[in-house]
């Protein structure tokens, strides 16, 4: 379970960082989304992995930490709202600058190819 979670977070984060370093707005936003997925999973497991246990003290022998679950909900809501905002902003930038490059103009390599 630990290895599975760690691998999933690592893949999500590395893909996110790779896409984040691209030059056009759409891959960057996808990258940010993947990165926030990785981060959200990371917050979720910061209360340790306790499969099958409830978040109430006294019900079973083990209980799961409820706080990271509350934190991750907050983080999901915020990142969702931010993604919506940045998508609209990217569309607006595409319309205003006539280009979807983050600098508003194609780089030299883009023009060559």
């Amino acid at each position: 379970m630990e290895i599975l979670m760690a691998t999933v977070i690592a893949v999500l984060t590395s893909c996110g960082v790779y896409l984040l370093l691209r030059g056009r707005t759409f891959p960057i936003i996808l990258g940010l989304t993947l990165l926030t997925y990785g981060v959200n999973l990371f917050i979720f497991i910061s209360g340790r992995l306790n499969p099958g246990s409830s978040t109430i003290i006294g019900v079973g022998e083990q209980y799961a930490d409820p706080l990271p679950q509350a934190l991750v909900l907050t983080a999901i809501v915020i990142s969702f709202a931010m993604t919506a905002f940045v998508l609209v902003l990217a569309l607006r930038a595409r319309a205003e600058l006539g280009n979807d490059h983050v600098d508003g103009r194609n780089s030299v390599e883009d023009v060559k190819s």
């Binding site: 990165l35 981060v39 990371f42 917050i43 910061s46 990271p68 983080a75 990142s79 931010m82």
Partner: peptide, 12 residues
Amino acid sequence: SSLFLLAAAILY
């Protein structure tokens, strides 16, 4: 913000 969350989760 993503980095902030990572840091907060590590510290927590």
